[in-house]
Each structure stands twice: as C-alpha cells, then as structure tokens.
C-alpha cells in the first residue's frame, strides 16, 4: 500500500455497564461505515484484539470501574491513549452500576448465590476478578480528558464529539447535549 497520512487510532472499551453506550455508537449506522474509512478501530468489543494496544489516539470508555480487571484495563488505557473519553453516565458518574455501592460486596454476593458452590471467596478469585468495594466513575481511577454524558449518549452527541476530534478541534457540546439520563 502507498504511504498515506497516518489514520487516527480509535479504541473503545467496555467496563462495568450494559453496553448501551456501544449500542448507541452502532446507532451511528451508515455514518459508522464512513467513520471506519477515516479511523482504525484498534480495540473494542467489535474487533478481535485481546490486549489494549499502544499509541491509541482516542479511547471511548463505557462503564464504571467495578472490579480489579476494570481497574487494570483503565490504567492500561490511560498509559496508552492520548485522549480518554468518559463515555456515558456510568463512566461519568457511576450511574446504575454504582447503585450497589451502599451494600457491602459480601452481602451482595450472598444475596444472589445461595449454594455451597457459590462463586464467593478465595478459591473463586483464582478464576474471577474481585469486585471493588464500590463501583467508581472513571475519573476516580484515571485522569479523564473529555466527558460525554447520557444513558446512553445519543448518536448525535457521539457524532458531534468525534467529528470535532477528527478535525482536531476541542469538543464543545451545546448545553442540550450535556444532560444525564
């Protein structure tokens, strides 16, 4: 292939959340097909990359930081990305994912699992990531550059933010695009 200006490397990550923000990203619909011509999607639920890559330009992070794996991934995202975007209300505030925070983790697990084989305790943590005491908004785990609220952020918001970034402009969302819920 001939030399071309380097494409923007875009990553998306899904921590503790429902994937609704990613679904809203997919709701860009045919714009999405145009977008993938302009950027390389180097990591995320739609591509087969197992480890967070280096030299990422923009990373959209959905979800709250709810277990030790999320925390590791968040740190890796920060270390390898120029711009980190808190993508949606769970990343921005903790939202529904953090509704568990008032309840001790042990009580949560014992309420949900009742049998002797329940995934609780040291043996289970060999296979499963430990839950943090509280689900944290992303900026309590790592530094965040841009906040994109909404549950989920409407596709128009996502398009506005990404278009600005691809044009190397700051993201200035109008007030009606800065709402929660």
């Amino acid at each position: 292939m001939s030399e071309q200006p380097k494409k923007i490397r875009l990553a998306t990550a899904w921590l503790g959340g429902c994937s609704g923000c990613h679904m809203s990203f997919l709701d860009l619909d045919e714009l999405l097909i145009e977008l993938v011509e302009k950027v390389d999607i180097v990591y995320g639920p739609l591509v087969d990359c197992k480890e967070f890559p280096q030299d990422v330009d923009i990373c959209l992070v959905e979800g709250a930081v709810t277990n030790v794996e999320n925390l590791e991934l968040a740190r890796s995202i920060r270390n390898n990305s120029k711009l980190v975007i808190s993508f949606g209300d769970c990343a921005v505030t903790g939202n529904v994912t953090s509704m568990r925070n008032r309840i001790p983790v042990k009580d949560l697990l014992t309420a949900v699992y009742h049998e002797a084989q329940a995934p609780i305790g040291a043996e289970s943590l060999k296979f499963l990531p430990a839950l943090l005491k509280k689900a944290l908004p992303l900026h309590q785990a790592i530094k965040v550059d841009i906040y994109l609220p909404g549950c989920p952020p409407a596709p128009e918001r996502i398009a506005t933010a990404i278009t600005a970034l691809l044009d190397k402009q700051p993201v200035n969302l109008p007030p009606e695009m800065r709402t929660f819920g």
Binding site: T66, N67, R102, L108, V112, L131
Partner: peptide
C-alpha cells in the same frame, strides 16, 4: 467474570 447485583440493590 462480571457481577452487577440488580437483584439485591433494587
């Protein structure tokens, strides 16, 4: 590997 806890926190 994910746990969310809806049945309890609701």
């Amino acid at each position: 590997t994910e746990f969310r806890g809806f049945e309890k926190f609701c």
